[in-house]
Amino acid sequence: MSDTLDDDKPTRRDFLYITTGAFGVVGAASVAWPLIDQLNPDASVKAVSTIEVDISSIEPGSFLKVAWRGKPIYIRRRTNEEIADAEKDDNLNLPDPQKDIDRVQKKEWLVVVGVCTHLGCIPIANQGEYEGWFCPCHGSHYDISGRIRKGPAPTNLEVPPYEFVSDSLIKIG
């Protein structure tokens, strides 16, 4: 070999360096992925994702709290006054604007995840300035439709996926 190799010209050795390096990175990443992915929710956690709840015993104006995916779900049977209250505020300037009708399947029944959208505490029902929910951790107030009205929480209480199996049975998840 001569000493007059052109420095700018890629050599066979450059090609070997780059391909070896690239294979090394891909190899390392493919080994790293299982080590990272094991952190994600496992099959047993994902498996228990639907529950059925009998709602026939809930009186108007009261609620039932059930556990779903390790989180509480509030199933609330609302009175006519409460529904009227919720709909009256539909067009106010809400932090997370949403009409009451878009948050329920049947007006009488409100189903929400009982986890404050701020930092995950459980709001207490029938408390706060809007008599829906009040989160004791950082002072978020929700109304009778589970909408955020005052405090640090950014969004309304989440409505989980659910369906009415019959008039007295709800399937959540």
């Binding site: 990272i36 952190l39 994600n40 929710p41 496992d42 956690v45 995916r69 390790g70």
Partner: peptide, 16 residues
């Protein structure tokens, strides 16, 4: 969810 290993703080969280 990756940090928790689930949807809420639970056994996978405690173990890690």
């Amino acid at each position: 969810q990756m940090l928790l290993g689930g949807f809420a703080v639970d056994n996978p969280t405690l173990n890690r």
